Computed example of a mutant assay.
Amino acid sequence: MTNHHQSTRGKPRVAFVTCAELPDLDPDDRLALGPLAARGVTAEIAVWDDPAVDWAGYDMVVLRSPWDYARRRDEFVAWARTVPALANPADVVAWNTDKRYLSELSAAGVPTVETVWVEPGQAWTPPAGGEHVIKPAVSAGSQDTGRYDLTDPEHRELAVAHVRRLSDAGRLTMVQPYLQAVDTAGETALLFLADPGGLVFSHAIRKGPMLTGPDRGEAALYKEERIDPRTATAEQRAVAEKVLATVPGGPERLLYARVDLIPGPDGAPVLVELELTEPSLFVGYADGAPDRLAGAVLAHLRRH
């Protein structure tokens, strides 16, 4: 949808959406501002919950770093539904901000990390042993996420306390086996950006291990990550394409997508997360990626 007032002016106006704690955007996102200006696109930074912003005045509103939404997810989704020309679309935001989508993808035949879901108020007994990850179904940037060795009595107690803390807050809990390949191969994030023909692969990065132990309830907007460029394998790209084919409404509606994969116990890639709302796109780690992101914005503008 293009605002008539904007179209008569001739220069597209795009909002890059952030949160009050990152009023100048994440530095990685800022790399696209110059290439956008070179394409004649006026890009402005706007905070998602700023009541003074006229969202209808933009030709496109691009979710970038509104990373405080996790504790206000219902409010964030309601806001997204009021924003014309939102990328990615509000219905995708509603679906993707609750990690129960992993169950849908698993049912559709996508290889995903095994997950046990613990409803608020539900009794939970830790598995007998092994390393596990505990996190809420609604989170961003590894907030409220911990790693536990359940053969360790102290870790078992901390794991139970973590689930109880989430439950007391009315939050759905995810319990997953810790995939040991994270410590060696790391996590591979495959980045896809729009072009005139649809969503296409842009680049990939490697994320090193982030979880060093239990979560002790210390809130943080996001955790620092060790990032390196990576060349995605044909197998990883095939899994990522299968993941994207399951997106409600089809991947052609998307401006961007990030597919996070880790080798499973048999070495084959499994999906950890599909990031369609506000993922870091890591454009600073691949030659030409900031320019490709700017091109994606322009292609999306022309299509929609």
Rank of each mutant, 00 (worst) to 15 (best):
P177L: 12
D152Y: 08
T233G: 06
K135G: 02
Y148M: 12
A219I: 05
T246Q: 15
V259N: 04
S139G: 03
V182W: 04
G121N: 11
M174P: 00
G264P: 06
R206K: 11
A137K: 06
P251M: 02
L158P: 00
A161V: 01
R164Q: 13
T188M: 04
W124K: 11
R147Y: 05
G197E: 14
D144L: 09
G146Y: 03
W124P: 02
G141M: 04
V243K: 07
V259S: 01
L199I: 06
G249E: 05
S167G: 14
E157S: 15
L244M: 10
A234V: 02
V133P: 00
A204K: 09
Q176V: 11
L255Y: 08
L179T: 03
V243A: 02
R164A: 14
G130A: 03
R258Y: 01
K242A: 13
P209N: 14
E241S: 13
Q236S: 00
D260T: 12
A137C: 07
R206Q: 12
D168C: 04
G141N: 09
Y256L: 10
I134D: 04
V259D: 02
G249S: 10
Q143P: 01
R226N: 09
S142I: 02
Y148A: 05
A240P: 03
R164C: 03
K242M: 12
R230G: 00
T125E: 08
E225L: 15
T125C: 09
K207Y: 04
Q143F: 00
K242Q: 15
L221W: 09
A128T: 15
D152V: 07
A238L: 11
V259E: 01
G264R: 12
T184N: 12
G249P: 10
A169R: 15
R164I: 00
L261Y: 05
P126G: 04
S142H: 04
I134E: 09
A194S: 14
G213I: 11
E131M: 12
A137Q: 04
P127D: 11
P177S: 08
T246Y: 04
I205W: 03
D149I: 14
R206V: 05
T233A: 06
E252R: 14
Y222L: 12
A232V: 01
A219W: 15
E131H: 13
F201L: 10
R206A: 09
R253D: 05
V239E: 02
Q180W: 06
Y222M: 12
L158F: 03
A140C: 05
A204M: 13
